[in-house]
Simulated scan of single mutants.
Amino acid sequence: MARPRNKEDLLKAAEEKRELLTDSHREVVKRIEQFTNEQLFLEKVFPAVGGSVLGSYFVSSTSGHYNWAMKKLKAHQKNCK
């Protein structure tokens, strides 16, 4: 995508990114909902995740990642002032 040249381009690009984020989040939630709580949080249900539980991967790719991103955005905003 080309770099926005004016406010309208910037707002359009932001809306497109928001839609991508929303779609991606919905897809992850659909995948999470396919599992029971036991499948997500009991150890050794899915050997492929090693010594961890599947739920921890979903946490790190959703709320954990969102928290990390918000901290980065806030720090960037603070540096821009």
Rank of each mutant, 00 (worst) to 15 (best):
39 Q>D: 08
71 K>E: 04
51 G>W: 10
14 A>Y: 08
61 S>M: 08
43 E>T: 15
21 L>S: 07
36 T>G: 14
12 K>P: 06
27 E>K: 11
45 V>Q: 05
68 W>Y: 12
66 Y>A: 10
45 V>K: 06
57 Y>I: 04
52 S>A: 14
15 E>I: 06
67 N>C: 11
59 V>I: 15
60 S>P: 06
22 T>E: 15
51 G>R: 13
54 L>T: 05
17 K>Q: 11
68 W>P: 00
39 Q>K: 08
40 L>M: 09
44 K>W: 06
48 A>Q: 14
65 H>G: 00
75 A>K: 03
30 K>L: 14
27 E>M: 04
51 G>S: 05
13 A>M: 07
58 F>P: 05
44 K>H: 09
78 K>C: 02
46 F>W: 09
74 K>G: 01
34 Q>D: 10
55 G>C: 02
55 G>D: 02
67 N>D: 00
52 S>K: 15
76 H>P: 02
16 E>A: 14
18 R>Y: 10
68 W>G: 06
35 F>N: 02
63 S>A: 10
14 A>D: 02
13 A>D: 05
50 G>A: 07
13 A>E: 03
54 L>R: 02
66 Y>D: 09
61 S>F: 09
15 E>F: 09
67 N>T: 07
46 F>E: 00
63 S>L: 11
50 G>I: 09
25 H>I: 12
72 K>C: 05
70 M>I: 11
79 N>A: 15
38 E>V: 13
11 L>A: 10
20 L>T: 08
68 W>V: 01
54 L>I: 08
44 K>N: 09
43 E>S: 15
46 F>P: 00
26 R>P: 00
33 E>V: 11
32 I>F: 12
46 F>Q: 06
29 V>I: 11
43 E>Q: 15
41 F>L: 03
51 G>H: 07
62 T>H: 06
54 L>N: 08
21 L>A: 10
22 T>H: 04
51 G>Y: 13
55 G>P: 05
37 N>S: 14
66 Y>G: 00
13 A>W: 00
43 E>M: 03
35 F>M: 05
58 F>R: 00
43 E>A: 13
32 I>W: 04
12 K>Y: 03
51 G>A: 15
26 R>H: 14
19 E>L: 14
57 Y>C: 09
62 T>R: 02
44 K>G: 04
73 L>K: 01
66 Y>Q: 10
42 L>W: 06
26 R>L: 13
74 K>V: 04
49 V>K: 06
45 V>L: 07
29 V>R: 13
11 L>I: 10
45 V>E: 01
71 K>P: 03
58 F>S: 01
12 K>E: 15
35 F>L: 07
42 L>E: 14
18 R>T: 10
12 K>F: 12
28 V>E: 01
52 S>Y: 09
79 N>Q: 09
44 K>A: 09
42 L>K: 15
51 G>P: 01
69 A>G: 06
54 L>C: 05
60 S>L: 00
